[in-house]
Amino acid sequence: MQAFLSSLVSVLFHGVAYGMILYVISVGLSVTMGLMGFVNLAHGVFAMAGGLLLSTAMGRYGVPFPLALLLAFVVVAVASVVLERLLYSKLYSAGELPQVLFTMGLIFMSIAVARYLYGTQAAPLFLPDYLKGQIPLFGRDFPTFRVVLIIFSGLIVAALWFGVERTRWGAMVRAAVDNRDMAQSVGINTNRLFMLTFALGSGLAGLGGALGSDILPVQSTYPLENLVYFMIVVAVGGLGSLSGPFIAALLIGIADTATKYWLPELGAFLIYAATIAVLLWRPQGLFGVRS
């Protein structure tokens, strides 16, 4: 019993850390797909880019960790705006297939770039000394970096929710997700709103990819390998929702960690099966605003 409780705490801890990272990466995908109706399979590319930036900035240029994290966020956000203006925006009304193909193209290209930079290896994560080691909590030792990761992600989530619920920008986003034409007719510049929201969502993915490179190793196949999980978070959580994907991400993080711990022979089978069941039961996701 003692041993079980101990492993339960461990599973919950690592599961929550994983779930938090999944959420920080995927939340942008939920909002942009809900807002723009764009099937963006390449969201993982932004997360991988964040991880690559962190590793490269620290390993090759000696940039300190906090600054490198900020860099991952800013550079990915800015780069995504360029992509959005040049390419994504051309396909907003083009239908699903061109969107799927275009974002698959981005995935293939990014895989090539990552392979060029780091070969088939994962990009190394350079943790500063103050994040290495363990800290004692409630009479147990937990890895420092994971604890910080959970707290930091929690702060991001709180800031994001505050932003969407309390600011003018947030009100506009909610209005546009509800009814785009209506939002446009009351004078919201939806184009600019899309662009900013896309930048923020991609920036967060970059930050999440960087922060989570300990949990989701940053290697060239990253955008393809993790695609299913990012998509599941959004589809199960519900398009255009903030809280739905959060719950979905936590559930997936904990369930995935738990199966790996207790039922490794099942792999991700249970999660996929649960996803299919949820989608059949509620096609719009657990907390979706759109059907």
Binding site: M33, V228, L279, L280
Partner: peptide
Amino acid sequence: RTKDLTQLMLTLAIAAIMMEVGNK
């Protein structure tokens, strides 16, 4: 029975599940 994103996701999830079966 489904459409759009849900349909896409279902095809993806079914592929993932079969991959998992093949693997395990």
